[in-house]
């Protein structure tokens, strides 16, 4: 039981070694040097202040802050015998009792005529599209209904641009028209802006090094980097980004905003900083709360299906061998 295969041990050691070799140059860089580099080429490292009560009350009087998040539950086994249930929620700090909740359901067994999926890759895409669209639609409804001061999306805005293009354009237009600020809060940043810049200017590095690897522990609590446009040129046009360390955890989160609202980016970074507990993973509490509310437990989903589907159909299609194991 407890004997780990020696091969496996070796593999892990190899991985460790490989990572060490690959990142040697980065690890060897002095923290000061690296910060200088960022200051010079990426954007200025700035200290953030927490917003005061008066400022927050002003936001409240201007409509409050909306958090948008989505959730996916999957019931069943392998393709195509499963159902996925999507739910998106937009909840406003001002209007606790009245969140926008949208839901959708998807099963490969029940496909509308024109779309036919064959493989998992396409399905993954399908899932992203469904979820992103649902979230954007919730945000649109929320802008119309709650008239908030700002919207915090869970995840980068670029994702919506890609996965839910049409709805996203509508949301974007709506926000610009109404002056509602819209930002995406990226918990896991996947960009490689700094690494690319180092590679370009230095030439020392020849593989892709991601920003999260470099920024880990590099920023102090309450610091942010407003990414200059020229550094950000690799990403799709039309968005401005910032990295910030919003909690005592060494990880760094990212935020992006639409171009036309870029002057609000710093202010929004401060808002996120204010709403993030010091001893946390760096996610603003409001998004955590929305995330918790949008989440549906698997048991609840199962009992939903059991109650509203014919038992025979449910069993035939959606109970996998794994479900029966215990």
């Amino acid at each position: 039981m407890y004997n780990i295969n020696d091969k496996l041990k070796e593999k892990v050691e190899d991985l460790n070694q490989a990572l060490r070799v690959k990142y040697r140059d980065i690890f060897e860089l002095d923290k000061g040097q690296l910060r200088d580099f960022i200051n010079k080429h990426i954007g200025q490292i700035k200290k953030m202040d927490k917003l005061d009560r008066a400022q927050l009350s002003l936001y409240q009087s201007k409509g409050g802050i909306v958090g948008v998040d989505g959730s996916v539950n999957k019931v069943g086994g392998a393709y195509p015998h499963f159902i996925e249930i999507y739910q998106a929620m937009a909840k406003c700090t001002n209007r606790r009792e009245d969140p926008v909740v949208l839901a959708d359901i998807y099963s490969p067994l029940y496909i509308e005529e024109e779309e036919m999926e064959e493989d998992d890759d396409l399905f993954q895409n399908k899932r992203d599209v469904k979820l992103a669209t649902l979230e954007v639609e919730a945000a649109i409804e929320s802008v119309k209904r709650h008239k908030p001061y700002a919207i915090l999306m869970d995840g980068g805005l670029i994702r919506y641009n890609i996965d839910a293009h049409d709805s996203w354009l509508e949301l974007r237009g709506l926000c610009e028209e109404r002056g509602t600020i819209i930002v995406g809060v990226i918990k896991d940043i996947k960009t490689s802006i700094i690494g690319d810049m180092i590679r370009e200017l230095d030439g020392k590095i020849n593989s892709t090094i991601y920003d999260r690897e470099i920024l880990f522990g590099l920023l102090d609590y309450g610091e942010m980097v407003l990414v200059k446009d020229e550094a950000n040129k690799k990403g799709p046009q039309g968005y401005a980004s910032v990295f910030l360390r919003s909690s005592l955890a060494p990880t760094v989160i990212g935020m992006d905003i639409i171009d036309s609202q870029r002057d609000k980016l710093e202010e929004m970074a401060q808002l996120v900083f204010t709403l993030t507990p010091e001893n946390s993973r760096g996610v603003p509490l409001w998004l955590d709360i929305v995330d918790k509310e949008v989440l549906i437990s698997d048991e609840l989903i199962r009992s939903l299906l059991e109650q509203y589907m014919d038992r025979g159909l449910y069993e035939r299609f959606f109970i996998s061998e794994r479900d029966k194991r215990n």
Binding site: K50, L51, R53, L56, S57, Y59, Q60, G64, I65, C92, T93, N94, R96, T274, L275, T276, P277, E278, N279, S280, R281, V283, L285, W286, D288, I289, K292
Partner: peptide
């Protein structure tokens, strides 16, 4: 209260954040 004991995904929520949320209307 499902958000208090101030524990969401293992995070410890400090009161200043709760105060800020209150100022925002929540």
């Amino acid at each position: 209260n499902r958000y208090i004991p101030l524990n969401i995904y293992g995070d410890f929520v400090d009161s200043s954040v709760l105060e800020s949320l209150k100022a925002l209307g929540y």
